[in-house]
Design a protein around this nucleic acid. Structure first.
Lengths: 147, 147
DNA sequence: AATTTATAGTTGACTAGTCAACTATAAGTG
DNA sequence: CACTTATAGTTGACTAGTCAACTATAAATT
């Protein structure tokens, strides 16, 4: 099989399997994968981000963020706080319920990350990331040109 | 930002952007991405595979293959041929319509592959694939254990 | 041969995500 | 200041994919 085809499959597999592992561990908290991603971002030092920023940092569309925040709000993990400086935007702030689960959430993601890089030393990990970033830019650039 | 978080985003971005590029080029042929993936597999030397094998080689569920083959059949690109040796299974065979488009389809995927690896030499490409495969196995193994 | 177990494919219900159209507010320009 | 353009968020329609239940056939076990 073509090497690149295998690379594609491996990337798909990594993302799919990671999603499954995360989902299974978030389930007892009553959270979906996207909701967990969002909370993880907020609990690791970036509380009070706007939805637009969440979308950008998670690399998903703002429609997904809008619905995930709806759901997190309904479940009592976050509040939308209308910004005075820009009345179109909300700051998404963590509730005490979210804070009391924050270590749990961090552990779930940290464990996944540790699992993923088991047996790969730091230099190689940095290297792989730089190559993936390179590939990503290659494709993105062509998208921009043809758009 | 955590390096691994960036790696995740890059992988997601590569897959998403590749999908968009492929979709845009398949559109004039009246094909979706999954249908294109399937035809590409069949035209690059593996005609008459069974659906189960297509699912495995594309790393997608057999439900997706079932529906994509339905659609490809309706569009006249493939035929299902009931196997005498195993009357549960079909061989998926390319029609002349598919064959007359095969170079076009190959070019679409080859161009994407060339674009992706622009500026990355062969050794590094082999290396990145081995690391991705390693990561994929790390995750998969934990899935197996916890299932 | 009859019974159980496994496999190929189909279908329906579901999840995650995209895209485009929309509302409301903000910022830039004549 | 009025007008245009840009931005934050929402919503509905759509796509790609998963999972589990099902049918039909095959293979293994008794």
């Amino acid at each position: 099989m073509l090497l690149i085809r295998k690379m594609w499959l491996d990337m798909k597999s990594v993302i799919r399997t990671a999603r499954k592992i995360i989902n299974a561990q978030l389930e007892p908290l009553g959270l979906t994968g996207t909701e967990g991603d969002l909370l993880f971002l907020l609990v690791t030092g970036s509380d009070n981000l706007q939805q637009e920023q969440l979308a950008e940092q998670l690399d998903i569309g703002k429609a997904v963020v809008s619905r995930a925040v709806d759901s997190l709000e309904a479940k009592g993990f976050v509040n939308r706080i209308r910004q005075v400086s820009d009345r179109r935007a909300y700051a998404i702030s963590l509730t005490s319920k979210a804070l009391s689960n924050s270590q749990n959430i961090k552990d779930i993601y940290d464990n996944l990350y540790n699992l993923a890089r088991t047996g790969i030393d730091d230099d190689n990990f940095i290297f792989i990331e730089s190559l993936l970033s390179h590939i990503s830019k290659n494709l993105q650039h062509s998208e921009d040109v043809n758009a």
